[in-house]
Nucleic acid binder design. Sequence first.
DNA 1: CGGCTTTGACCAGCGC
DNA 2: GCGCTGGTCAAAGCCG
Length: 315
Amino acid sequence: MEFTSLLNTSLDLNAKPLRFLEDAPPPKQELESSSIELGRHVTMREERSALMEELNRVSAENKKLTELLTVMCENYTELRSQLMEQTSKNLGGVDSNTAASRKRKAESSIINGNNEGTTNIGPSESSSSDEDSSKKPREEHIKAKISRVYVRTEASDTSLIVKDGYQWRKYGQKVTRDNPCPRAYFKCSFAPTCPVKKKVQRSVEDQSIVVATYEGEHNHPHPTKPETTSGSNRSLTLGTVPCSTSISSSGPTITLDLTKPKPSHDETTSLRGKIDAPEIQKYLVEQMASTLTKDPNFKAALAAAISGKFLQQSN
DNA sequence: CGGCTTTGACCAGCGC
DNA sequence: GCGCTGGTCAAAGCCG
């Protein structure tokens, strides 16, 4: 998703820190000398009021950022739903042979270096696509249909259920060699002919993260009503809006996936109210922070921006 | 009673 | 060829 086309995500480091440096009371030594110069006219009350003012400004900015995040999520939701509709229109029928056939070799080449075995949660595990980009077009066809979703749940929650709005039927569970946590296999049961499969397994390194791997594309519209997976409410979601971070197979893009279950027209409006709930906002911020801090690209960009600002300031 | 989950058995790919 | 492994099948049991 092209968030950058919707929002200016550049780091505006001038916003807080520099203004803070300008407005905030000077360091202790300077404060002493300046207070001497000013004849001790700077009272503690003035200092406090300045701090309060700064605090209010930061709070307002925080609120503004929260609203920005909400808008961003809504835009993403809308775009994704549009994409899903277009995809379902263009791909009315999906080649079921590729989904049904046992293609362990091709699959392992796709999954290798991704999450299998290493289970690195972060952008370094961008999926497979880069490694195999020089290989056969058939693999490109397959990889286009494989996506990965990371969902943070409680580590104590042993259920491998990821609510995404679709209806899934569990057809198997297996303990794999690389991961002591069992892997669950699901088929889409919303439409009998739907070839989509889903594998759900906990991450080795962080058991609070559940990795859901989707294979294939739904050949039916998204259920209008949010479905509870397998009729169970055991999965950890926030009300009816399961929030998850997802890393698509098409690249290392990190997205905040709020489309599961995808809201319908009237639900889109109600989504705003759900997102406005404090617990949702808190969770969103946590998810965002978690995702961003795990992204080396973000860290590098942040470090470059900060160092750049320091250099600029020193000059 | 229908749909779902569980779980052991089976199958196929892969490496040695 | 054999063993290991991941993926799937299908019977049995559970549940609303």
